Amino acid sequence: MVMVRDEIEAGARAILSALDGVHQIPRFSTREPAPDLDEAYAIAAAVVAQRVARGERPVGWKVGFTNRTIWDEYDVHAPIWGPIYDSGIAPAEDGVAQCSAALFCEPRIEPEIALRLAHVPDPQMDDRALLACVDGIAHGFEVVQSLFADWRFAASDTVAGCALHGCYRHGPFTPVDDADADAWCEKLSRFRIALGCDGVAIDEGGAENILGGPLQVLRHLVQGLADNPHGWELRPGDIISTGTVTRAFPVKAGQRWESTITGLPLSGLILDIR
């Protein structure tokens, strides 16, 4: 790698300062030489280490840019990933969750499906075997943010910038019964989610948008972490956010976002933006 350790640590401190101060920073990709993806993941790993050192605990992973229909919009053409922390994830209560837009830079909302791991998968597993590693499936909203102005960035910026993760709100995890595994595999490849705001329909998307479904996203993440040199690994109990099935939309205080799911035994959610 071209970047030395001091540069990596300085990049991580800049990311943390931006997160804490809710302010944006210049894109790493405008530097000469610009960091490559390996160097961006090194910065991301340093951010993880610094967040853990101050008491935050990773509880899972978000996989971003799994939705191939938005690749051209953001000029990022492959999935990325980064940790979800205990400080930013919370369950909905009676189908309603809240988050504050003021905590994030240019926040946007993404409706997603989350998987909870019982066992650590192998990337060579077929869908049925991957599903056997999952003990619960939930619907959630991820609020994403851009530490780079106007949502303009290169892939390396998104990786260094915490994979654009802001916070995650989710409904209850529905258990996966082995007797229903074949039905689950079928449904996970065909479901759809409709997204609305304040009673107005906004967008709709389905499993085909996110690499063909959540199990394909899980396989991609497993392979990606296996190839990652920073010691990142999946653990039983991890929650995997598998990416937005619709486009991502800006949010602001006072809005109420709603989702409706068809094809999965999961309830929609309401997210109130404070």
Rank of each mutant, 00 (worst) to 15 (best):
M1G: 15
A10T: 14
A12N: 09
A14F: 08
S17V: 00
A18M: 04
D20N: 08
H23E: 12
F28Y: 12
S29P: 10
A34P: 14
P35L: 06
D36C: 12
D38F: 10
D38G: 07
D38I: 05
E39N: 11
A42N: 07
A46P: 03
V47H: 11
R51Y: 07
A53G: 15
V59R: 06
G60E: 00
G64M: 10
T66F: 01
T69G: 06
I70M: 13
E73I: 02
D75Q: 14
V76I: 14
H77I: 12
H77A: 11
W81R: 10
G82F: 00
P83M: 12
P83S: 11
Y85T: 08
I89M: 15
A90L: 10
P91L: 09
E106F: 05
E110V: 10
E112Q: 01
I113P: 02
P121I: 14
M125C: 00
D126Y: 08
D127A: 15
D127I: 01
A129P: 04
C133Q: 09
C133L: 06
C133D: 04
A138Y: 02
H139T: 01
E142Q: 03
V144S: 13
L147N: 07
A149L: 14
D150Y: 07
W151D: 08
F153R: 07
A154H: 13
A155M: 13
A155W: 13
A155F: 10
D157E: 00
A163C: 15
C167A: 14
R169H: 02
H170R: 00
D182N: 13
E186Q: 07
R190C: 00
G196K: 11
G196P: 05
D198P: 10
G205E: 03
I210R: 04
I210E: 04
L211I: 05
R219Y: 01
R219D: 03
V222A: 15
Q223T: 02
Q223A: 13
A226N: 14
A226G: 15
H230F: 15
L234D: 09
L234Q: 10
G237F: 02
G243E: 11
G243K: 03
V245T: 13
K252T: 14
A253W: 01
Q255C: 09
Q255I: 07
T260H: 06
T262G: 11
G263F: 01
P265E: 13
S267A: 15
